[in-house]
Design a protein around this nucleic acid. Structure first.
Lengths: 154, 154
DNA sequence: GTCTAGTTGATAATGGTTATCATTACCGGC
DNA sequence: GCCGGTAATGATAACCATTATCAACTAGAC
């Protein structure tokens, strides 16, 4: 499939996978971490630490911003979350599925909105590069820049 | 060609192109701007504003850091420079050739080093996406993540 | 030479992210 | 069920790249 509306990963599946991975790592369970996990599982696409924090506070959760950052870092270290940099100076994060399925992002240079897309041919091309470069490729990012539908109309 | 050592664009060619583009835009000539242009033309791959500033100061040039940022912004607005975000919170810049030829970057997750690579198949795949998405694509970025040769050996 | 407005550069302000540290609370052992 | 140790928390200070401010400077037109 190419460039369609991206399917959101089943929230429960990722949540369970992430919780299990953290348990395997050792360490304690905490409410702050659970809250961030829940917020991540519930989101459609990438979200910044501040956005996650605001959302949690909005629903009455008194999580500290530091714990949001710490949890995101922890998840990122374990490959449970994908970091997305759109170039505006804020890091965004989204759940990373265990199977490796993922999408990329189209960033509007006018309004800053982010849309997801996936493309098999692109993945194939990137995979082929890995076999030729003198570099051990473990991951990749693709960002398209341009105008979203709304900004083209405006 | 794919994944070879990237050829550095002839420094003089880009420099002339950029100078001419800025002249066409109007405005004054300035020593600070010329200095940043010179530094950009001389660099092999992307460099941060701070790096450019340090290099200029190192060779006795009393350019203010603000002017470096201003010049980079100006060049970026005119498409004369490409902005590269490696995810470490610092923006890097490199000359953008008028023809549109460009390369992408492989970022080492261990030491942070950046290498350039180019791949025609990748470009073709990205171009094909543009025809299918409901998004007016004007540019794109690709970043590979992994281990560079040196860090694999270490 | 003079005038004017684009540029400069030192510095303050901004804002996302990270470090600090006293307090809290999870969890195994008793 | 209670303790003790320690991982984790959260408020806040520190950090640092970037941006805004503004008086001084200067390129270029007349």
């Amino acid at each position: 499939m190419a460039a369609h509306t991206h399917d959101h990963p089943t929230p429960g599946a990722w949540s369970a996978h992430a919780t299990e991975a953290l348990a395997r790592r050792g360490g304690r369970r905490s409410t702050a971490r659970d809250a961030v996990l829940g917020a991540l599982a519930a989101q459609d696409c990438c979200a910044s630490a501040q956005e996650i924090h605001d959302r949690l506070r909005g629903q009455g959760n008194r999580v500290g911003i530091a714990s949001v950052y710490r949890t995101l870092e922890l998840l990122h270290e374990h490959g449970l979350v994908t970091r997305v940099d759109t170039g505006d100076g804020v890091a965004r994060f989204e759940p990373a599925l265990p199977g490796g399925e993922h999408h990329h992002h189209a960033v509007c240079t006018r309004c800053g909105s982010v849309e997801a897309f996936a493309d098999d041919a692109l993945e194939a091309a990137i995979h082929a590069i890995g076999d030729r470069v003198d570099f051990e490729v473990t991951g990749h990012d693709v960002a398209l820049r341009g105008r979203c539908r709304a900004c083209r109309a405006a």
